[in-house]
């Protein structure tokens, strides 16, 4: 059986095509403004890579903050459900999943079967997301990759005062003016975000194994800061940013076209109502 999983995130789209539990092809591209078009285009590209046509695919399940834009998908599952399914496929010992993307950070407590037992999110504020790190890298005038690398060379821990990404940029600029080493600033940025993510993770409880996924899992500086912050080892799977799409494909394989993540999803809707 050939299935597809697509994760339409705030910043990037990820697609995986699987056949009988084996990965056939995968690809990613920026989401951009025209999210629906980006999703369609990438899906077709990945299919072409695998020399397949849309008709060859039995089921496609979408996930991600803009999953509704993948009109060709037959089903949609919440991000947390996709994360749990995807991670458990790769690392069956995972119990706590930390997913930090461009626009959201979340922590999930997963059952050995890949069910979401509990989850907490950090959203609608860039302070606890990959966007924060990108903004700070821009202020440092280096790439996110370089910032990650040099932060590992830092020998000095300095606090970052600003929580907001906008104020954080000014703080980074003043640190540069004060002749602070770039590597120490880089570490301060990663420590700050790791602290916020760890607080969110503590809400669901930190239990071994802790697995980090999402775009930020590729950031070695952040992962190291997180490791120090929680005082536990963390596991980063290969292609950590494809885990959501992989989980969606796993759901497609299992015939799950809809999944409820109890407790917090309900609360999130209530939260929206409460705000309105």
């Amino acid at each position: 059986m050939i299935v597809g999983g697509i994760d339409v995130g705030g910043k990037n789209v990820h697609v995986v095509i699987m056949k009988d539990g084996e990965m056939l092809a995968k690809g990613d591209s920026p989401t951009g403004i025209q999210k629906a078009e980006a999703a369609e285009r990438l899906y077709d590209e990945v299919l072409e890579q695998a020399s397949l046509k849309r008709a060859d695919v039995e089921r496609v399940v979408a996930t991600g903050s803009a999953s509704k834009r993948a009109a060709f998908a037959q089903g949609m599952i919440p991000d947390a459900a996709a994360d749990a399914r995807g991670v458990i496929r790769l690392i069956s010992s995972a119990r706590t999943i930390i997913d930090v993307g461009a626009e959201e950070g979340r922590a999930i407590k997963a059952s050995p079967e890949g069910k979401v037992l509990d989850f907490a999110i950090n959203e609608k504020c860039a302070a606890g997301t990959g966007t924060f790190v990108e903004a700070m890298a821009r202020a440092l005038e280096i790439s996110v990759e370089d910032m990650a690398r040099i932060s590992l060379e830092s020998t000095r821990s300095i606090p970052m005062n600003a929580q907001c990404a906008v104020f954080g940029e000014s703080e980074v600029v003043s640190l540069i003016h004060a002749k602070t080493e770039k590597r120490d600033i880089a570490r301060a940025v990663h420590d700050a975000i790791a602290g916020r993510i760890a607080s969110v993770a503590r809400i669901v409880g930190l239990e071994k194994d802790v697995v980090v996924i999402g775009g930020m899992a590729r950031n070695v500086g952040f992962v190291e800061s997180l490791r120090k912050e929680i005082g536990m080892d963390v596991v980063v799977p290969d292609d950590p940013d494809f885990v959501g799409a992989l989980g969606a494909a796993a759901a497609a394989t299992a015939g799950v076209l809809e999944e409820e993540v109890e407790a917090k999803v309900v609360e999130k809707e209530k939260y929206e109502e409460g705000k309105a």
């Binding site: 907490a120 809400i203 407790a263 917090k264 309900v266 609360e267 999130k268 409460g274």
Partner: peptide, 11 residues
């Protein structure tokens, strides 16, 4: 304030 309850609380 309600932030914690709305974001993390259960019924």
């Amino acid at each position: 304030s309600e932030g914690w309850k709305l974001m993390y609380g259960r019924q």
